[in-house]
Structure formats: structure tokens, C-alpha cells
């Protein structure tokens, strides 16, 4: 089966998924940022008591806030989060993730189960890993710049 067919037929559950930073709306910005830093994840998903997504706070929003001045780190995250949290279901086709990334410029997508509860995080990196896995030969022989020893890093 070709890559193109896989995109249409395989489901989001086949993508590499990350364990998301999940917080409730009353958590402080400081606490959310601390968890994002510790786990090296670019966003925090704000959920209700049933773990249903209510909003999202991303590193892009952090940059925007810092560009206007110092942060009020002890305010609840609810004050700063975006009210919408883009999501996909585990059984949606991978092509939907591709569309979200290209058409809506979405970098991170919350993955939810049948009850709309947050179960994971995927997006740009998950999709790139999925495509790269299709080309094990090409991926392992590529020279990738000057640094032979890679630190554990995600993001730049």
C-alpha cells in the first residue's frame, strides 16, 4: 500500500502520539508553563472535570504575551487560553490531520475518544514521523547537519 493510500485509509491512532499537558482552568499560568517546560511540550490543554477540552494555551500565545510586556504568572490560565481547542478522533483518517495543518495552519491537535475526552496530542511532529517511517532507508542514511550528537529536543 502506498503512502498516499495510507493517508486516506489509516487512522489517527497510527500516528505517534504525545502525552499532553492537561490542566484545569483554575491552574496558574506559572504551573502550566512549568509542566510544558518539564515535558517539553508546546501547549497545555485546558479540560473540564470530565477531561473534555475547553481551551488551549500554546507557546505562540506565550510569545505574543511577552511581546507586550511582563507576564502575570500567578493568574489562572483561563484568563489567557484560547477558547477553542482543535481536535480529531482516534478513528479519523490521517488525511484530516494533513488538512488541518495545511489549510488551517494548526500545529497541534488534541486527540479525543468517543466520549470526547482528551487521550493524546498529535500534530506536525506526529505526521512527520509517520511519513518518515515510510522511508526507513532514506531516513537513516541522510546526513543531517554538523552535530553528530543530538540532545533530546523537540521544537526549534
Amino acid at each position: 500500500m502506498g503512502l498516499q493510500e495510507n493517508f486516506r485509509n489509516e487512522q489517527v491512532r497510527q500516528l505517534e502520539m504525545r502525552d499532553p499537558v492537561v490542566v484545569t482552568a483554575d491552574v496558574t499560568l506559572r504551573e502550566a508553563l512549568t509542566q510544558m517546560r518539564e515535558r517539553n511540550v508546546g501547549c497545555a490543554i485546558v479540560v473540564d472535570e470530565d477531561r473534555k477540552p475547553q481551551g488551549m494555551f500554546t507557546e505562540s500565545m506565550l510569545v505574543e504575551m511577552l511581546s507586550h510586556g511582563p507576564l502575570s504568572l500567578d493568574e489562572p490560565i483561563e484568563k489567557y487560553m484560547a477558547d477553542r481547542c482543535p481536535w480529531v478522533r482516534m478513528d479519523d483518517p490521517i488525511a484530516d490531520v494533513l488538512d488541518a495543518m495545511q489549510l488551517k495552519n494548526i500545529r497541534m491537535l488534541c486527540v479525543v475518544d468517543e466520549q470526547n475526552r482528551v487521550v493524546g496530542l498529535t500534530g506536525q511532529r506526529g505526521l512527520m514521523e509517520y511519513v518518515a517511517e515510510h522511508f526507513p532507508g532514506e531516513v537513516t542514511v541522510q546526513r543531517v547537519g554538523q552535530s553528530p550528537y543530538l540532545s533530546d529536543r523537540e521544537g526549534a
Binding site: R107, Q124, R125, A132, F135, G145, L150, E154, G155
Partner: peptide, 18 residues
């Protein structure tokens, strides 16, 4: 001049998105 898949390799293996 690298093959297109090289950019994916960097993103997937090294975790650099850009």
C-alpha cells in the same frame, strides 16, 4: 540538493520542526 525526505528525517528523528 538533499532529497525532500531528508527534511522529514530531521523533523522526525531530531525533533526540530523548522
Amino acid at each position: 540538493t538533499d532529497s525532500a525526505v531528508a527534511s522529514l528525517a530531521v523533523m522526525a528523528l531530531c525533533g526540530y520542526r523548522h
